[in-house]
Structures are given as structure tokens and as C-alpha cells.
Amino acid sequence: MNGPLPTLVTVLSLALAAWAVVLLIRNKPVGRALVVGVGVLEVVLVALVVSGIAQMIGSSRDFSRATFVGYLLGAAAIPPIAALWSLDESDRYGTTVLLVALLVMPVMILRLQQVWAGPVG
């Protein structure tokens, strides 16, 4: 995909993941500030979904469109679900849940870009 949004998602996810690691080391639960950070990430992800679908419609290239949309929606679904799931448990395990989800995000973006670049495959 063109534009800064995929890179922004990767950078933001890794920054939030680093934050979660700091909380883990200090044995702290997920705080309000980190939840706000995940909220910001989600806003960027919604923009990514809109922009991604718009770019897909505007493109005549041959790539797996269903997979592409699947990765877009999957990526946008992960942070809010993980945040809810982690807030349910206010200890370091809750923080780890959020960390795992945040580390999956760069992989989702990588696969999204591979699907966008490649032919049907």
C-alpha cells in the first residue's frame, strides 16, 4: 500500500509494545495511559482500513483482494479485543496479553504489504 499509514501502525505498535515491556519489568498492570495509546493506534488502523480499501478499488493490479481485506480487518480487530481481554486481569499477565497482541501487529502489516505487492498467491 502507498502512504505512511502501514509504517505508522508498525512504529506505533512497537513503541506501545516497548511501553508494555517497561510495565512488565516494573511488574505493573496496564494503565490508563497505555490504553489511550492503544486507542490512538486503533484510530490509525481505522484510517488504514479506509485507505486500504480505497486504494484497492482504485487499483487494477492482480492481487488477492479477499486476503488483503481480511488482513486489513483482522489487523484492526486485534488491539481493541486484546485491550478488553487484558483489562479484565489487572496484573502482569494482563500486560503480557497486550504485549503479545502489539507484537503481532507488525507481522500483520508485513503480510498485508506482501499481499498488496504480490500476484494472487
Binding site: G70, I81, E89
Partner: peptide
């Protein structure tokens, strides 16, 4: 505790494997 992490990873694989195979 660790069960919460286990469920998180299972949920991610459920999403990834199912979506991929459906496509």
C-alpha cells in the same frame, strides 16, 4: 494468569488459520 496469555495466542491463531483457509 498464564491461561489468559494462552487464550490470547489461541485466539490469534484461530483468526489467522481460519481466515487464511477460507480464502
Amino acid at each position: 494468569g498464564p491461561g489468559r496469555i494462552l487464550i490470547t495466542v489461541y485466539a490469534i491463531f484461530a483468526l489467522a488459520a481460519t481466515a487464511r483457509s477460507l480464502v
